[in-house]
Design a protein around this nucleic acid. Structure first.
Length: 423
RNA sequence: GUGGCCAUAGCUCAGCUGGUUAGAGUGCCAGGUUGUGGCCCUGGAGGUCGAGGGUUCGAAUCCCUCUGGCCACCCCA
């Protein structure tokens, strides 16, 4: 009988890693909330149609990376490959934008994409992100970018590079697509197979090709075809970022793989990650998304970041916190007859808010203390025959190698004194 | 989805061109120390050699398939 392993492309977050996860997630919550963003949670599966219409039916994500299934009523559902479409559905569906505008929300949670797994790319991965829905302003684009930037800052994650670009409005993009198709069509015969496909399906992606890079160099530049309003909007984003002290590099090759983006788009890169996966995340403005979903029109902007990738970088930089101790104190009896008294002390300490492990083993005292040491406990409470007889207890400081005997009513005070020294 | 590399104890890894009962370090458990931890000494447990099939007198070692990981591509988080 074969052992059942975790499914391909998934991983377990074991207790030893929980400290670094908590560190990352709490930092993101804290920074987002410092900008007035409120938490939102949406289902991890949605109607397949939400993604087909929102993300774009002909994007790679929807075309070949979704986990799709049918429920008993024959409805087509998909595990969410990203979160923006679901959040927009939830916010506008609940008419939150009628009460305040813009609606500022942040989220964290698992996303699913069925790509070939490798380091920094799993079937299930975790994103943290924010969305700002209901108002169109370059200052809000700059605001969400600044949140991400402050988040990296809070983690002390150095070496992040912000790349920004503008895709213009729908009219600009149509014009640009036409220009690209016109430029590339005469070369169709010599294009690589991927590019032939891109030319028909998604011409913007032609710019990503490495094989036909000589053609890319001579291709029309989006910026040249933007109308004055789109350029002004983008320039306002840039100056707003500058005032916020967020260093941005303009990179006209940033395109993003989702159809709903317009105007501002951006990515956060880190060189310590491998080539194709050097992106920690990205985002942009999606003013047309609500309409694609048949919801009342509402502009929006936001980002999503890959938590696993950030943790990978943090590990490499040595800034991720090590595992937390299992507990503050271990209570152990010296011999079996004192076990019940020890259990009572443990409960008493827990009531006072101390994290306590009760050693129920029948090992020798020296082994119990060694075990307490390995749990990372600061204090050990030792209950032996003498203590039970005298109504006392030994409280040992495992860091200072010092101990004292106190009357059992003073147990909580004595333990608190010892563990407070930890901080 | 396409191609390449890899899979031996809980963990990190040895195991030469196929040759008896598969090893080391570390961790775990116990004893040294019948009430005091981080060091030391001694002993023990722990492996269907990723799974299945094949070649062979004989397979961890060679071949095939599958599973999983890593890397590149595609693309993205």
């Amino acid at each position: 009988m074969a052992e059942i392993a975790a499914p391909r492309g998934t991983h377990d977050i074991l207790p030893a890693e929980s400290a670094s996860w908590r560190w990352l997630l709490q930092a993101h919550d804290r920074i987002a909330e410092s900008f007035g963003y409120r938490p939102i949670e949406t289902p991890i599966f949605e109607s397949t149609e939400l993604f087909a219409r929102g993300v774009g039916a002909e994007t790679d994500i929807v075309e070949k990376q979704m986990f799709t299934f049918t429920d008993r009523g024959g409805r087509a559902l998909s595990l969410r490959p990203e979160s923006t479409a679901g959040v927009v559905r939830a916010v506008l569906g609940a008419h939150l934008d009628q009460e305040r505008r813009p609606v500022r929300v942040h989220y964290r949670g698992p996303m699913f994409r069925a790509e070939r797994p490798q380091a920094g790319r799993q079937h299930q991965f975790t994103q943290v992100g924010v969305e700002c829905i209901g108002e169109r302003s370059p200052d809000l684009d700059a605001e969400v970018i600044e949140i991400a930037w402050r988040f990296f800052d809070a983690l002390q994650l150095t070496g992040v590079r912000l790349q920004v670009n503008t895709l213009g409005d729908a009219e600009d993009r149509r014009r640009y697509r036409d220009a690209l198709v016109a430029y590339y069509s005469p070369f169709r015969a010599r294009l690589c197979d991927d590019c032939k496909r891109r030319l028909d399906i998604n011409p913007l992606r032609l710019l990503d090709c490495k094989k036909d890079s000589d053609l890319v160099a001579g291709a029309p530049v989006m910026w040249d075809l933007l109308d004055a309003g789109s350029k002004a909007f983008f320039n306002d984003v840039l100056s707003s970022l500058e005032k916020a002290g967020v260093p941005a590099t303009v990179n006209h090759r940033i395109v993003r793989g989702l159809d709903y983006y317009a105007d501002t788009v951006f990515e956060f890169w880190h060189d310590s990650l491998h080539g194709a996966q050097n992106s920690l995340g990205g985002g942009g403005r999606y003013d047309g998304l609500a309409e694609l979903l048949d919801l009342p029109p509402a502009p929006g902007t936001g980002y999503a970041l890959g938590a696993e990738r950030i943790l990978m970088v943090a590990q490499r930089l040595g800034i991720a916190p090590g595992p937390d101790p299992d507990c503050d104190a271990v209570v152990c009896s010296v011999e079996t007859p004192q076990a019940q008294v020890a259990a009572t002390f443990a409960r008493e300490l827990r009531t006072a808010g101390v994290r306590v492990v009760l050693d129920v083993s029948e090992r020798r005292l020296d082994r119990k203390l060694r075990a307490a040491d390995r749990l990372g406990a600061r204090a050990a409470v030792i209950v032996g025959e003498e203590e039970v007889r005298d109504g006392t207890v030994v409280v040992r400081d495992l860091f200072e190698h010092a101990q004292q005997r106190v009357g059992s009513p003073e147990l909580t005070d004595a333990v608190s004194r010892v563990i407070r020294m930890r901080a």
